[in-house]
Simulated scan of single mutants.
Amino acid sequence: MWLTASTFGNTVYQTPSKSIKNRDKSAVFVCTHNIASYFQMMWYKQTHGTLELKLMGYLNSETDQIETEFKDKIDLKGNGRRNGTLTIEDLTEDDSAVYFCAAYDTVL
Protein backbone atom coordinates (compact mmCIF):
# COMPACT_ATOMS: atom_id res chain seq x y z
CA MET A 1 0.00 0.00 0.00
CA TRP A 2 1.55 3.33 -1.05
CA LEU A 3 0.37 6.45 0.74
CA THR A 4 1.77 9.92 0.17
CA ALA A 5 1.36 13.06 2.22
CA SER A 6 1.53 16.55 0.81
CA THR A 7 1.05 20.08 2.14
CA PHE A 8 -0.56 23.32 1.03
CA GLY A 9 1.62 26.34 1.67
CA ASN A 10 5.07 26.81 3.13
CA THR A 11 4.13 27.03 6.79
CA VAL A 12 2.01 23.90 7.14
CA TYR A 13 3.95 20.70 7.68
CA GLN A 14 2.80 17.14 7.28
CA THR A 15 4.62 13.97 8.30
CA PRO A 16 5.49 11.42 7.19
CA SER A 17 5.94 12.51 3.58
CA LYS A 18 5.59 8.90 2.35
CA SER A 19 4.29 5.75 3.91
CA ILE A 20 4.09 2.14 2.76
CA LYS A 21 1.71 -0.01 4.78
CA ASN A 22 0.31 -3.51 4.58
CA ARG A 23 -3.35 -4.25 4.03
CA ASP A 24 -5.49 -4.25 7.19
CA LYS A 25 -3.01 -2.01 9.06
CA SER A 26 -3.49 1.68 9.83
CA ALA A 27 -1.65 4.79 8.65
CA VAL A 28 -1.15 7.96 10.70
CA PHE A 29 -0.38 11.42 9.31
CA VAL A 30 0.39 14.46 11.48
CA CYS A 31 -0.16 18.04 10.36
CA THR A 32 1.28 21.04 12.23
CA HIS A 33 1.49 24.79 11.75
CA ASN A 34 2.39 27.84 13.83
CA ILE A 35 0.17 30.49 12.27
CA ALA A 36 -1.74 32.17 15.09
CA SER A 37 -4.71 33.24 12.95
CA TYR A 38 -5.31 29.75 11.47
CA PHE A 39 -7.82 27.69 13.40
CA GLN A 40 -9.16 25.18 10.86
CA MET A 41 -7.42 22.10 9.49
CA MET A 42 -8.86 20.21 6.52
CA TRP A 43 -7.85 16.72 5.32
CA TYR A 44 -8.17 15.75 1.64
CA LYS A 45 -7.65 12.57 -0.40
CA GLN A 46 -6.47 12.53 -4.01
CA THR A 47 -6.74 9.16 -5.73
CA HIS A 48 -4.06 8.21 -8.28
CA GLY A 49 -4.85 9.44 -11.78
CA THR A 50 -7.39 12.09 -10.76
CA LEU A 51 -7.22 15.80 -10.07
CA GLU A 52 -10.17 15.67 -7.69
CA LEU A 53 -9.54 16.31 -4.00
CA LYS A 54 -12.10 14.67 -1.74
CA LEU A 55 -12.70 16.38 1.57
CA MET A 56 -12.36 13.74 4.27
CA GLY A 57 -13.00 15.96 7.27
CA TYR A 58 -11.81 18.91 9.30
CA LEU A 59 -10.69 19.95 12.76
CA ASN A 60 -11.17 23.26 14.47
CA SER A 61 -10.68 24.49 18.01
CA GLU A 62 -14.12 23.27 19.05
CA THR A 63 -14.94 20.13 17.06
CA ASP A 64 -14.02 17.62 14.40
CA GLN A 65 -16.22 16.76 11.47
CA ILE A 66 -15.77 13.65 9.31
CA GLU A 67 -17.52 13.45 5.96
CA THR A 68 -20.12 10.64 5.69
CA GLU A 69 -18.08 8.65 3.13
CA PHE A 70 -15.16 8.41 5.60
CA LYS A 71 -17.03 7.97 8.93
CA ASP A 72 -16.05 4.30 9.37
CA LYS A 73 -12.61 4.72 7.81
CA ILE A 74 -10.75 7.60 9.50
CA ASP A 75 -10.23 9.20 12.86
CA LEU A 76 -9.26 12.84 13.44
CA LYS A 77 -7.60 14.11 16.61
CA GLY A 78 -6.21 17.46 17.70
CA ASN A 79 -7.37 20.94 16.84
CA GLY A 80 -6.99 23.30 13.95
CA ARG A 81 -4.96 25.86 15.90
CA ARG A 82 -1.64 23.99 15.96
CA ASN A 83 -1.79 20.29 15.12
CA GLY A 84 -3.96 17.44 14.00
CA THR A 85 -3.70 13.75 13.30
CA LEU A 86 -5.38 11.74 10.55
CA THR A 87 -5.58 7.98 11.15
CA ILE A 88 -6.75 5.76 8.32
CA GLU A 89 -7.95 2.40 9.63
CA ASP A 90 -8.05 -1.09 8.03
CA LEU A 91 -6.13 -0.16 4.88
CA THR A 92 -7.21 -1.56 1.53
CA GLU A 93 -6.01 -0.93 -2.02
CA ASP A 94 -8.64 1.83 -2.29
CA ASP A 95 -6.66 3.79 0.30
CA SER A 96 -3.60 4.12 -1.95
CA ALA A 97 -3.65 7.88 -2.54
CA VAL A 98 -2.10 11.24 -1.78
CA TYR A 99 -3.38 12.82 1.44
CA PHE A 100 -3.29 16.58 1.98
CA CYS A 101 -3.77 18.70 5.03
CA ALA A 102 -4.58 22.38 4.70
CA ALA A 103 -4.72 24.91 7.51
CA TYR A 104 -6.50 28.25 7.18
CA ASP A 105 -8.41 31.00 8.92
CA THR A 106 -12.06 31.77 8.39
CA VAL A 107 -13.93 35.02 8.81
CA LEU A 108 -17.36 34.46 10.31
Results as ranks from 00 to 15, higher is better:
residue 108 L to V: 09
residue 82 R to T: 08
residue 7 T to A: 06
residue 11 T to E: 05
residue 42 M to N: 06
residue 108 L to A: 12
residue 49 G to Y: 08
residue 91 L to R: 05
residue 59 L to Y: 01
residue 33 H to Y: 11
residue 17 S to L: 11
residue 4 T to K: 15
residue 62 E to N: 14
residue 37 S to F: 10
residue 79 N to C: 15
residue 35 I to M: 08
residue 72 D to L: 10
residue 2 W to D: 04
residue 18 K to I: 09
residue 87 T to N: 13
residue 102 A to I: 05
residue 2 W to F: 05
residue 12 V to T: 13
residue 17 S to Q: 14
residue 69 E to C: 14
residue 26 S to G: 12
residue 33 H to L: 10
residue 61 S to P: 10
residue 17 S to K: 15
residue 23 R to G: 10
residue 27 A to Q: 00
residue 20 I to F: 14
residue 41 M to N: 01
residue 7 T to W: 03
residue 9 G to E: 07
residue 72 D to H: 12
residue 63 T to C: 07
residue 49 G to Q: 08
residue 75 D to A: 08
residue 6 S to P: 04
residue 93 E to S: 12
residue 98 V to Y: 01
residue 103 A to Q: 00
residue 65 Q to I: 06
residue 9 G to H: 13
residue 71 K to S: 15
residue 46 Q to D: 07
residue 105 D to W: 00
residue 74 I to N: 02
residue 24 D to P: 08
residue 104 Y to V: 02
residue 27 A to D: 01
residue 99 Y to D: 04
residue 6 S to R: 14
residue 84 G to I: 01
residue 85 T to N: 07
residue 106 T to W: 07
residue 82 R to Q: 10
residue 61 S to V: 13
residue 79 N to P: 15
residue 58 Y to A: 05
residue 95 D to W: 11
residue 84 G to F: 00
residue 63 T to E: 06
residue 34 N to E: 09
residue 51 L to Y: 15
residue 12 V to C: 14
residue 29 F to W: 09
residue 76 L to K: 03
residue 75 D to M: 08
residue 97 A to M: 06
residue 18 K to T: 09
residue 86 L to S: 00
